[in-house]
C-alpha cells in the first residue's frame, strides 16, 4: 500500500495523526466538561418545571442529546468507513471502528433514558413508539457492525466488510424509520408522542449545551480509541516502536 504522503493529506497516515490526536484530546475533554456543566446547570438548576410533565421532563436534557449523538455518530461512522473503502485510507477505517462502540453506547443510553421517561409519563417501561423502536434497531445496526468486525481476523477485510455494512445501514435507516412510523400510526395512533411541540428557550439552550457536551465527549473518546487501534494495528512498524521507547 502506498505511503506517499500527499502535501495536503499529511495527516492521513496513522503515524502523523497519532501525535496530533494526542494533543487534541485534552482540549475536547475540557470542552466537554465546560459544556456539560453549563448544560446540566441550565437543565437541572435553572430551567423551570413543565406545566404538563412536572419535573420528570428534565430527562430530555439527557435523552435527546443521547439520541442525536447515536444517530449523528452512525452517519459519521458510515462516512469514514466509506472513505476508507473508496480510497483505501487506513486511518479513515480506523476512525470508523473507533466510533462504533461510543455510538452503540449512546443508542443504549437513549433507550434507557427513554424508558425511564416513559414510565412516569405513560405508565409503561417500554412504549413502541416510532422513535424508540427505530433507536432500538439503530442499536442493533451498531452491534452488527461491531460483531462483524470482531469476527473477521484480517483487519483490511474487516474494514472493508464493515464499510459495506455501514453504508447499507445508512441507506436503510430512513426506510426503517419511515416504515416504523407507518406501523406505529396504524397500531397506536399518535397519542404517545415523546417529542415536544413547543419549548421554552431556556430548555432549548439546556438541550443544545448538553448535546454539545456529548459531541465533545464523543470526539475525545473516539480519538482515544482510534489511537489505541493505531497502536495495535501498526505494532510492527518503526514509528510505533519509537513511540514506546524502543
Amino acid at each position: 500500500m502506498s505511503h506517499r504522503p500527499f502535501h495536503w493529506y499529511r495527516y492521513a497516515s496513522p503515524q502523523a495523526f497519532y501525535p496530533l490526536a494526542g494533543r487534541m484530546i485534552p482540549w475536547f475533554w475540557a470542552l466537554a466538561a465546560i459544556f456539560g456543566v453549563a448544560g446540566l446547570s441550565v437543565g437541572f438548576l435553572i430551567a423551570p418545571g413543565d406545566a404538563q410533565q412536572g419535573e420528570g421532563y428534565r430527562i430530555i436534557f439527557l435523552h435527546v442529546p443521547a439520541s442525536w449523538m447515536s444517530m449523528f455518530l452512525y452517519l459519521v461512522m458510515a462516512f469514514w468507513a466509506g472513505l476508507g473503502l473508496a480510497f483505501r485510507f487506513r486511518l479513515s477505517s480506523m476512525m470508523a471502528s473507533a466510533l462504533a462502540p461510543t455510538g452503540a453506547m449512546f443508542a443504549f443510553l437513549s433507550l434507557w433514558t427513554g424508558a425511564l421517561w416513559g414510565k412516569p409519563m405513560w405508565g409503561a417501561w417500554w412504549v413502541w413508539d416510532a422513535r424508540l423502536t427505530s433507536e432500538l434497531i439503530l442499536l442493533f445496526l451498531y452491534l452488527g457492525f461491531i460483531a462483524l468486525q470482531a469476527a473477521i481476523d484480517d483487519p483490511r477485510r474487516a474494514d472493508q466488510a464493515g464499510a459495506i455494512l455501514a453504508l447499507v445501514g445508512v441507506v436503510n435507516i430512513p426506510i426503517i424509520y419511515f416504515s416504523v412510523k407507518w406501523w406505529n400510526t396504524l397500531h397506536q395512533g399518535s397519542s404517545l408522542n415523546l417529542a415536544r411541540s413547543s419549548m421554552a428557550t431556556t430548555m432549548l439552550y439546556g438541550m443544545l449545551l448538553c448535546a454539545l457536551a456529548c459531541w465533545m465527549y464523543a470526539i475525545a473518546i473516539s480519538l482515544m480509541r482510534a489511537r489505541r487501534i493505531m497502536l495495535e494495528r501498526e505494532k510492527d512498524t518503526l514509528w510505533v516502536r519509537k513511540e514506546l521507547g524502543f
Binding site: E55, F108, L109, W112
Partner: peptide, 26 residues
C-alpha cells in the same frame, strides 16, 4: 424532582456512569 426523582436521577446516574466507565475501560 417533584416525585419523579428516581426516574430523573436514574437516568443521570446511568449516563454519568457510562461516560466515566467508557474512558476508564479504554
Amino acid at each position: 424532582m417533584g416525585s419523579h426523582g428516581p426516574y430523573v436521577w436514574g437516568c443521570f446516574v446511568v449516563m454519568a456512569a457510562a461516560m466515566i466507565l467508557e474512558p476508564a475501560l479504554l
